[in-house]
Design a protein around this nucleic acid. Structure first.
Lengths: 343, 343
DNA sequence: TACGTTTCTGAAAACCTTTTCGGTCGACCG
DNA sequence: CGGTCGACCGAAAAGGTTTTCAGAAACGTA
C-alpha cells in the first residue's frame, strides 16, 4: 500500500520487522539498538543496519508503558498570549534535551476548571512532571500535595510553602535599576509604575527605595507613582511629575510599556533623553524597548533562565525528591541608549 | 507508602484494581467505563463507582498502544518568540477538545536539522498529526510526502503543492485596508511597508493597488515605499513622504510597528490623525495598536481562526485523507481611532 | 423437559517494547 | 576427555488497556 499524501502508510515498522530482517530475535534487536553489552559487535551492526534500512523508530508509547516513564512533561500555563510563558517555555524546552523529553503545552486561560481538566488529561498521559506558569507574579493556588508527579511553579509562586516555586527577583530588579541610575550620577530619581495590587509593583518599588536609601537619597516627587501597566499611564504620570518636580533627572518605569509613555512625554516636553533625563524600563520586551526613541535601557527578568532552571529542578526531582520553598532568579540590566552618565 | 511532596505515590491505580474492587473482570470494567452496550446497568454503576472511589484514570499510553491512536498532535514551530505561532497555537488548542487531544510543542528555532530532530521525536511518539507553523508568510520546504501522519502547514505554505497549506490572505488584507480608507473619503493614499523580499509585503501592496485602481486612484507618492519592518523605517519613510507629497491624506502601513513610526512623525509634523491624515496598520498586535496615539485601526490576520481551521483540517484528515493546495484565510478590519471619515 | 434466544460476563489475544533468565556453544583448564 | 566458564542469544513475562469470542445464565417456547 503506497503512502499517498498523509494517509497512514500501512502498518508502522516495528522492532519485530527489524529483528526479522537482521535474522535475530526481538530481544537481541532491542539490546543491540540500546547499546546493551549482551550482543556481539557483528550482530549489533547487522541490527543497526536493518533498523536504518527500514528507518525504524521505536514506539515511545510502548517504551513508556514498560519503563514507567513517558519522557514527557506538561506545561500548564495561564497566559499564552502573554509574554511570560513563552520565554519560560523556551528555556524549559532546551533544558530537556529535545530527544529525551517532549512537552505538552496546555493553556488554562485563567480558568480553574479548565485547569483541573488539563491536569487530569496530563496525568492520564502519565507525564513525568509538571511546570505551572502563571500570568502574573503573584501567589496562585497550589495544585495540591498528593499528585503522583513532581510539580514546579514558575513565575507565579504556589501558595503552599511545601511546593517548589521559582520566581523573578523583583526586589533585586528594582535595586538594579536604581543602582544603574545612581552610577550614572543621577540624584533626582522618580519611579512610575503599574497597578499597586501587583506584588511585582510593590517589590520593585521596595528594591528601588532600598537602594536610594543606601545612597542617602529620596524618591523625586516624594512617592512612588502607582497607576496602571500602560503607555497612557506612563504619559499621564510623567506630565504630573514634570509639573510637580521639574528638576527630575531620571525616571525608573515599572515596565517597558510605561517607559514608552514616559519617553513620549519627555520628548514632547523637550527634555532630552538621556542627557537631561535618563529613563529605564522593566521587562526587556524587545519590540517596545529596542524600537523606542532612544532605545530603552531596561531590566530583563531572565525568564528563559527561569524556565531552564525550572526544567532542571523538575528533571532532578523525577525519581528523586523535590525541594520546597520559593527560589528566586535575579534579573539583569540591559543597557541601551536611554541612560548615560550625567554631564 | 505515603505520597510526600511530588514523590510518586507507589503504583498508579489500574483498571485491574477497579475491576477487583467492583468484583468484575477487567474486560467488563473496560466496557462499563467506555459506555459499551454489553454490560448491565447495575454492573456498570458498580464499576463507575469503584473507578471514582479509586480516582482511576486510564493509562493513555496503553490505550494508544492498542488503538493505534495516541490522541496527540505535534506543533512544529519556527518562531516561538514571534507573534504568529502563539495565536495559531491557541486556535489549534481549542479546536481539538482538550480532553481528546493534547499538543506537543516543539520550537525548531529556524534550524533545519533541529527540525528533523523534532520530527523524528514526534513520529516516535506516534502523534496522530502535525501542524507546521513558519516564521514568515513565505514558502518553506515541505517535510516530505511519505510521512506516516497527515501534516498541515500554517502561515508559511509548503513548497510542495501536494501538501495542504493554510495562509492568511494578504492580497485581500491590502484591499481591505485601502477599501476602508477610500470609504473614509481619502483620495491621496500612500503605502509604507516592510522588506520587499517578503511575499507578504508584495501581496499586501498588490491588493492595495488593485483596490486603488478600481477607484481610479493612484498611490500617493507614485510608488510603494518598501523598506524594513521597523518603527524607524516608518518614521524615515513618513518624513520622506511628507516632503515629497505633502497633501497625502491617508497612509496604509504594512505593519503596526511601521504604523507606530508613521504616527510619531505625523505627530511631530503637526498633522492631526485622523482629521488630516488617516493611518491604518497591519497585524493588530495589541500592545502596539491599542496603545498608540490615537489607537490604531489595523487589519487583523485572524490567526486564531487560522489555527482553528488548521486543527479542523488535520482532525478530518486523521484516518481520512487530506486535501491539498493552499487555502487562504481572510483577515478582518479592526477600526479604532486612527481612521475616520473625512470632513 | 428440551431447546432456542437473549443478555451479560470473562478469558485471552493483541499492541510494542524491555528485561530477566535459562540455554547453547565454543574455548580453555585440569 | 570431562568439566567450567564466558560470551552470546532467544523465550517469555511484563506493562495497561481494548476487543473478540466463547461460555454461562436466565428466560421463554414448544
Amino acid at each position: 500500500m503506497e503512502s499517498t499524501n498523509g494517509t497512514a502508510t500501512g502498518r508502522a515498522v516495528t522492532l519485530r520487522d527489524v529483528a526479522r530482517l537482521a535474522g535475530v530475535s526481538v530481544a537481541t534487536a532491542s539490546k543491540a539498538l540500546n547499546g546493551k553489552q549482551q550482543v556481539r559487535a557483528e550482530t549489533r551492526a547487522r541490527v543497526v543496519q536493518a533498523a536504518e534500512q527500514l528507518s525504524f523508530s521505536p514506539n515511545t508509547l510502548a517504551q513508556g508503558l514498560i519503563t514507567q516513564r513517558s519522557g514527557t512533561v506538561g506545561l500548564l500555563t495561564s497566559d499564552l498570549e502573554g509574554r511570560f510563558s513563552i520565554p519560560i517555555l523556551m528555556g524549559a524546552e532546551d533544558a530537556f534535551g529535545s530527544d529525551q523529553t517532549s512537552v505538552f503545552l496546555c493553556d488554562a486561560r485563567g480558568d480553574t476548571i479548565r485547569e483541573r481538566h488539563h491536569l487530569r488529561a496530563l496525568l492520564s498521559r502519565r507525564v513525568d512532571g509538571l511546570i505551572v506558569v502563571g500570568a502574573r507574579p503573584d501567589t496562585r493556588p497550589s495544585l495540591g500535595r498528593d499528585l503522583p508527579v513532581p510539580v514546579v511553579y514558575a513565575y507565579s509562586p504556589s501558595d503552599d510553602p511545601a511546593d517548589l516555586s521559582l520566581v523573578t527577583d523583583n526586589v533585586d530588579g528594582g535595586r538594579l535599576a536604581v543602582d544603574h541610575l545612581i552610577r550614572c550620577g543621577r540624584r533626582r530619581i522618580a519611579h512610575i509604575t503599574g497597578d499597586p495590587g501587583y506584588s511585582a509593583a510593590q517589590d520593585r518599588a521596595r528594591g528601588a527605595q532600598a537602594r536610594l536609601a543606601e545612597a542617602g537619597l529620596e524618591l523625586a516627587g516624594g512617592e512612588v507613582w502607582f497607576g496602571m501597566w500602560s503607555e497612557a499611564w506612563g504619559r499621564g504620570a510623567t506630565r504630573l511629575l514634570l509639573d510637580r518636580c521639574p528638576d527630575v533627572d531620571a525616571i525608573f518605569a515599572g515596565s517597558d510599556e510605561i517607559a514608552r509613555g514616559v519617553l513620549d512625554v519627555l520628548h514632547e516636553a523637550g527634555r532630552d533623553v538621556p542627557s537631561q533625563v535618563a529613563v529605564i524600563g522593566y521587562d526587556n520586551w524587545t519590540i517596545l524597548a529596542a524600537n523606542a526613541r532612544p532605545p530603552l535601557t531596561t531590566v530583563d527578568m531572565n525568564l528563559e533562565e527561569l524556565g531552564r532552571i525550572a526544567a532542571q529542578r523538575l528533571f532532578a526531582a523525577i525519581g528523586g525528591t523535590l525541594g520546597t520553598g520559593v527560589e528566586t532568579v535575579p534579573g539583569r540590566l540591559i543597557t541601551r541608549e536611554s541612560t548615560a552618565p550625567l554631564g
